[in-house]
C-alpha cells in the first residue's frame, strides 16, 4: 500500500492494484477502532442476559422486529415517493404529448382532449424536418459508435499492453489537454469545417468527424478493463507464435465483451444528447440540427406557444427507443460506469 501515484498520468493504473487490498485495510481500521469497546459491551450484554427473564428477552426481540418492519415500510414509502418524483416529468411529457386542445404551456398535466395530433404535427413539421433531424442523429450515432469504439479500444489496448518510448508523454498530453474545455476547439473547427462545406445544413457530417477524431482521449475506462485481464494470457499466446494483432482480435476483444458493448452504447448515445456542438456547428441552419438542437429550437420563446406539445411528442419519439436500448444493455452500462468510477 505504500505505492503512490508516480505522476498524474500514471494515476489510473494504480487503482487497479490498490482496490484489491481495500478489504484488509478496512478490516484493520475497524478492528482498531472497535477492539477497545468490544470487551466492555460484551460484558454488559451478558450481564443483562443473565439478569433478565426469557420473557423479557422475547418481548425485546418482538419489539425489535416490529421496529424493523415499521422502518422498512417507511423506506418503501420513501422509495415510492422518490420514484414518483423521478418518473413524474416523464409521465408529464407523455401526457402532454397527447394534448389536443392547445399547443402552448397549459398549467395542467392531464389532457382534456386526447389524440395523436402532436405526433402528426411533429412528422409533418416543415415537410418532415423532424425526420431529417432524426436521420441526422441516427447516422451520427452509428458512425460515432463504430469509429469511436475502434479508436478508444485501440488507444486503451496500446496503453495497457505496450511499453514504448513516449508512452508516458502521450498519457500526460491527453490528461493535460483533456483539462481544457472541449468547447474551445469549436471556434477553430467551425471555420475549418466551413471551408470543407461541412457545417450549417451539412453539420452532421462535420460533427461526425469532430466526435470521432478526438475520441481516443476517452480511453480510461477501457484501459482500466484491459488492465484487469492477465498479461500472462498475452505471453502464453506469444510463446505459441501469435502476433500482437492476433492476440488483440482473437484473445483480448472476445474477453472484453462488456467494455466493447459499453463503448458502442456510449458512442451511439452521445450524439442524441449533444446540444452544444450540434447547435454551434449547425449555426441556425435547421436542416443540419440533431434532435437535441432541433427540439430545443421548438421551444425557444418565439416558437413555444405553437410547438410546446410538439416538443413533448418529439421528446417521446426520441426517448423511447433510446430508453429501450439502454434498458436492454443496462448490464453492460453498469459494468462500464462502475468500473470507470473505481478505476478512475
Amino acid at each position: 500500500m505504500m505505492n503512490e501515484r508516480i505522476e498524474n498520468g500514471e494515476v489510473f493504473e494504480f487503482y487497479g492494484s490498490e482496490t484489491k487490498t481495500v478489504e484488509s485495510n478496512i478490516e484493520m481500521e475497524v478492528a482498531e477502532n472497535f477492539t477497545p469497546e468490544y470487551t466492555d459491551i460484551f460484558v454488559a450484554q451478558t450481564d443483562t442476559l443473565s439478569t433478565s427473564t426469557t420473557a423479557v428477552a422475547n418481548k425485546g426481540r418482538v419489539s425489535q422486529k416490529t421496529k424493523n418492519r415499521v422502518v422498512n415500510i417507511v423506506i418503501h414509502i420513501v422509495l415510492a415517493v422518490l420514484c414518483f418524483v423521478w418518473i413524474l416529468p416523464f409521465i408529464g411529457i407523455v401526457l402532454e404529448s397527447f394534448r389536443c386542445e392547445s399547443t402552448g404551456l397549459a398549467g395542467y398535466l392531464i389532457p382534456k382532449q386526447w389524440g395523436f395530433d402532436n405526433y402528426a404535427r411533429l412528422f409533418t413539421f416543415q415537410n418532415g424536418l423532424f425526420l431529417k433531424w432524426y436521420g441526422n442523429t441516427f447516422l451520427m450515432g452509428i458512425v460515432t459508435a463504430v469509429v469511436q469504439t475502434i479508436f478508444q479500444l485501440s488507444v486503451a489496448y496500446v496503453l495497457s499492453r505496450f511499453r514504448f518510448n513516449g508512452r508516458k508523454f502521450l498519457m500526460n498530453l491527453i490528461l493535460v489537454f483533456g483539462m481544457f474545455p472541449g468547447f474551445l476547439t469549436l471556434i477553430l473547427l467551425y471555420t475549418w469545417m466551413h471551408d470543407w462545406n461541412l457545417t450549417d445544413a451539412n453539420a452532421p457530417y462535420g460533427l461526425m468527424i469532430i466526435y470521432v477524431a478526438s475520441s481516443g482521449m476517452g480511453y480510461y475506462i477501457a484501459k482500466g478493463f484491459f488492465d484487469t485481464i492477465s498479461k500472462s494470457i498475452d505471453e502464453a499466446a506469444r510463446v505459441d507464435g501469435a502476433t500482437r494483432l492476433q492476440i488483440f482480435f482473437k484473445l483480448i476483444l472476445p474477453l472484453s465483451k462488456p467494455i466493447v458493448i459499453y463503448t458502442i452504447l456510449m458512442g451511439f448515445m452521445g450524439p442524441w444528447g449533444d446540444f452544444v456542438m450540434a447547435t454551434f456547428m449547425a449555426n441556425n441552419a435547421s436542416a443540419g440540427y440533431n434532435v437535441a438542437a432541433g427540439l430545443q429550437w421548438l421551444i425557444t420563446d418565439s416558437m413555444k406557444n405553437d410547438y410546446y406539445t410538439t416538443f413533448c411528442a418529439g421528446g417521446v419519439v426520441v426517448a423511447v427507443p433510446i430508453t429501450v436500448l439502454f434498458l436492454l444493455l443496462q448490464k453492460y452500462y453498469v459494468a462500464g460506469v462502475t468500473g470507470g468510477a473505481v478505476k478512475g
Binding site: L79, W86, F90, W272, F311, G315, A319, I322, F326
Partner: peptide, 19 residues
C-alpha cells in the same frame, strides 16, 4: 426501484431538463 431510477439516465438530458 433501481430500474426506475436507471431509466431516467437513459432519457437524453436535453429532453428532461428542457421539460
Amino acid at each position: 426501484w433501481r430500474t426506475v431510477l436507471v431509466m431516467t439516465i437513459a432519457i437524453p438530458q436535453f429532453i428532461s431538463l428542457l421539460y
